[in-house]
Design a protein around this nucleic acid. Structure first.
Lengths: 159, 159
DNA sequence: GCTCAATACTTGACTCATCAGCTATCTTCC
DNA sequence: GGAAGATAGCTGATGAGTCAAGTATTGAGC
């Protein structure tokens, strides 16, 4: 009866595992990050991206792309970080539509503080389950999955 | 300066890739599932789990565990599926605290209908990026990551 | 057989992110 | 140099999920 429902199809199993792994891992790490530093994972990721950016600043639209959020999602997220003083706005001389998000010194400090617990926690979570080769393999595969440049037309039924 | 921030630590890279892969993949598939069938990915997963369960029924608490949601999250999600007629409540004779969620015939039909587009889409997404071995490897690694029985005490700084 | 803790579930208030729709600015083309 | 369309960003309404606190039921200990 359930030909359609049986998971003989490979991708489905991997997808289900991705969903569960993500939910499981993020719910745990999110709780720790929130309790210890008052940040969400997305807050943390945004601070991290900014810290790596030239002059510690990024256009909001590029930030949105990097953390896979919509433009309005980034606006609201940055509202929070701005009100904490971790991020500032800076106009762009060349294009007045653009408002850069700039990591402040306080923001960098906050990031370092959060990283000091978050990085070991993340690492422990992986180290408990995988050896180094497996972590590297997982990272490489996941990076390919997240690469949006591939297969834009992936919708056999909808596009 | 940024000893703490540099991603020499392996787990962090894998974690960042997990976040991005998940966001990227789910935002796409969620949009398709919502547009074509009016379901979220979690709705779909719940219908699927129920379809595999004995007598097509599951305690809410077990369902919550399987899809990694809180008890209240499951209540709200099932509210929606109930009002669509895809799921029904059934009392448990042995324990009157328990309310089973039961997949109705309409719910099974809905699942089949949704699966008919969703499964190929999921599969295409993976097939575009990976060969079969890689998909199997990714699935196996992700399953281990999502396995909550391991490493409960994963918080070096908090527990 | 009564009390007390644990378990299953629901509800209200809240957070975070979405979409639709808006303004402002930039670019192109006539 | 003015109109038309594209791009960057913001805002109101909404949805999906969380937590905290509540009820109802069960089971264990005395």
């Amino acid at each position: 009866m359930s030909q359609v429902l049986s998971e003989q199809v490979r991708g489905v199993r991997a997808f289900a595992a991705l969903l569960k792994a993500h939910a499981s891992v993020t719910s745990r790490l999110n709780a720790l990050l929130a309790a210890e530093h008052g940040l969400t994972i997305n807050d943390y990721e945004v601070l991290l991206r900014l810290s790596h950016a030239p002059e510690r600043k990024l256009r909001r639209v590029d930030l949105a792309d990097q953390v896979v959020l919509t433009a309005s999602g980034i606006t609201r997220l940055l509202d929070g970080l701005e009100s904490c003083g971790f991020v500032e706005r800076a106009p762009c001389g060349a294009d007045r539509r653009v408002v850069y998000a700039v990591l402040t010194d306080a923001g960098l400090e906050k990031l370092k503080e959060a990283a000091s617990t978050h990085v070991p926690q993340v690492d422990a979570l992986f180290a408990e389950r995988f050896d180094e080769d497996e972590i590297a393999t997982a990272a490489a595969l996941l990076e390919r999955l997240g690469d949006r440049s591939r297969g834009e037309n992936c919708a056999p039924g909808g596009d």
